[in-house]
Design a protein around this nucleic acid. Structure first.
Lengths: 129, 129
DNA sequence: ACCGACATACGAAACTCTTCGTTGACATCG
DNA sequence: CGATGTCAACGAAGAGTTTCGTATGTCGGT
């Protein structure tokens, strides 16, 4: 039991992970510049966050160069599924199906999106057979 | 602009809201007893949480009796949709459809659940026509 | 060898969340 | 009346989050 379940990332951490998923392995400077296209966060703030995220095991750090290179430890989809499982647990009595149905009825999707979901359902049903 | 957007409930707050949705308007004691069937939380902890939630506007309080009666201010579904919108925004680039597809592929649903979702899709498509 | 640019590390401040002990009000029962 | 039990209110402690200033190290050029 060397390392444990990854902790749920906070909002700021998720913003940083988003950049890492989009750009791939990046330095603090690169993450900071990408992030500052929207809101303003100081350079050292991003650095500190990344240091903490390293301690938590959310990212891995390559220190071989002067400017350390950070990379998300878990893939985007894996993290998304983890977040969904968490939310289902906390707010939907553990039922992912209830979550899906609430997400669907809560908004208008266009025909293309609905079709994509339908195709996915077909695939899933085929697999379980 | 008398009151603002309700804040996202924390984990503990969500646990309390769950009890209020299940039981309807309840006193601190009732919430506490229900909550303690699983994990242990002190009475005053629940009280404090409910006081803070009142300040935040997550619940409303009826003080006409000695034991105040608390009620969730927002319905369960409304809160669930809010949480889903939040999560889509933070982790799925704002796309609820991506969220739904990830939730579906992340787990095995049984045939009955898949059918329920399919029916929901039919209903939605019918409405948009 | 020095200077400026750029990098990490450290620590503190402000804030939120969660927990619970203590206090004081009030009612009920003996 | 006084003891006991129930209740809200308050304050404070400890952990986690987010922010950033400051210190320190290192590289490249002049």
């Amino acid at each position: 039991m060397s390392d444990r379940q990854p902790p749920r990332p906070t909002d700021s951490e998720l913003a940083i992970l988003g950049v890492l998923w989009e750009r791939g392995p990046s330095t603090v400077r690169e993450v900071h510049e990408q992030l500052n296209k929207d809101g303003a966060t100081g350079y050292t703030t991003v650095l500190k966050l990344l240091q903490i995220m390293t301690e938590k095991g959310l990212v891995v750090r390559d220190e071989s160069e002067r400017a350390h290179v950070y990379e998300s430890r878990y893939g985007e989809q894996k993290t998304q599924r983890q977040l969904l499982t968490d939310l289902a647990e906390r707010a939907f009595g553990g039922s992912a199906t209830k979550l899906v149905m609430q997400a669907l009825s809560g908004r208008k999707a266009n025909a293309a999106e609905l079709n994509a979901i339908r195709e996915l359902l077909d695939t899933l049903e085929g697999e379980s057979r």
